[in-house]
Design a protein around this nucleic acid. Structure first.
Lengths: 226, 226
DNA sequence: GCCGATTGGCACGAACTTGTCACATACTTT
DNA sequence: AAAGTATGTGACAAGTTCGTGCCAATCGGC
């Protein structure tokens, strides 16, 4: 399940958007202004942010800049709402790193298609200090993982393993590859070490253990969406 | 270096777009109508196609459909050009699987940004790791098949079998040949192994089971189009 | 050096894969 | 229509891979 944060000062539009999102099965968060939006984003770490550019007080650009500066919100894709035909703003946004935009007024149906596409495309984007993927957040320096907001302490090996799995971006990691990348084994040692650590990792992940999927005869695959 | 095919009947726009692309360092191909466009795409297999929807004769939708039906052009991202504010067309296109659109008139600068983004996004998707044919998509490393978007888990042998069948490109594979290619059997062993695995494969393919056709006394043949 | 945490590896059972057989079914030939 | 041949199907046993509990070696902080 994906969570979408909508930052929009016009009540009508805010409602229109959130209603449509909920109908599509997304969890929604709302913020009526820029300051609130940044706070929400940092607190809840949504999967996507729909951000109005024109807002009183802190405008969309300022919000976007703030988000880029925080490690936890950095990787989140942003869909920008601009006035119709406002090419200058659109280009400015795209150059700053906004993922996509929609011109107002927009068709709700089209917006939903965009949201769907964005979430699919940015399923796992690696950032510098932290690694995000779905409900998963890894903090490189503290060896901690946050899964759906809950903190999980990992050992060095477990962290490495999870990191390699996540950074593969959904690709299947073969046993050999994992042993090489995590342990540095060059020979295809016949060992149960990998299995053991996968097991320990799964234990700590609790109900999210299913995100680490076994592909018999091949290796393991990470998928944040259960 | 990326190659972009531009399919556009209006000479002015065609020139404007290709010129801008060339300035950005892209190789360009052009087509002044739909039929020419399809031919170019199949012959040259570009990395991206910019496709005008409104064209005399074969329109953009028809072109798009043709492209999706050919295994070689199937994975190429398409950027659609529509009339300004033409929401209905845009949605229709997006639902068909068009990657992105631009409303005319557009800013060349913005178009370039879109092109850049599209090529970047689809780079990681289109790899040799996957095999396409019609609605079938095989992922080499994960032993998964996607048929009409639906995920199917295969075992190693099933995967090999399906891969050999698909890669034969519609040719009939004789029993001997399959036993040799998939199992490495050199002697023409009289065995029911092949039949059993074909059956298991068909079970997993569900209603697409008919794509694996039996040729009594000869072997099996794969055909993605029902 | 001591102690708890971490780590690698093993034994064993569980789960999955796979080749084969017996029999049913479908098609071909006479 | 009957006999003959080829394929589909369900069941099974052997082989393989994976999960799990446990133990010993190692590491790092005190």
């Amino acid at each position: 399940m994906h969570t979408v944060l909508v930052v929009e000062d016009e009540k009508d539009i805010l409602e229109l958007v959130t209603l449509n999102l909920q109908r599509q099965g997304y969890k929604t968060l709302t913020a009526a202004n820029g300051i609130e939006g940044v706070a929400q984003a940092k607190a809840s770490v949504p999967d996507l942010i729909i951000l109005d550019i024109m807002m009183p007080g802190k405008d969309g650009y300022a919000v976007f800049k703030d988000l880029k500066e925080d490690a936890r919100t950095r990787g989140i894709p942003v869909l920008m709402l601009t006035a119709k035909g406002d090419v200058a703003h659109r280009i400015a946004g795209l150059e700053l790193g906004v993922e996509d935009y929609m011109g107002k007024p927009f068709s709700p149906k089209e917006l939903m298609l965009r949201v769907k596409g964005l979430l699919k495309r940015t399923k796992s984007v690696a950032t510098d200090a932290s690694i995000r993927a779905g409900d998963f957040l890894l903090e490189r320096n503290s060896l901690k993982a946050f899964v759906a907001g809950q903190q999980i302490d990992l050992t060095a090996t477990e962290f490495k393993l999870l990191r390699v799995l996540i950074e593969s971006g959904g690709t299947v990691m073969e046993r050999d590859a994992l042993l090489r990348e995590v342990w540095g084994f060059s020979d295809t040692t016949m060992t149960r070490t990998l299995d053991t650590h996968v097991k320990r990792l799964r234990e700590k992940l609790g109900k999210h253990a299913v995100c680490v999927r076994t592909l018999r005869g091949v290796g393991y695959q990470f998928n944040p969406n259960v």
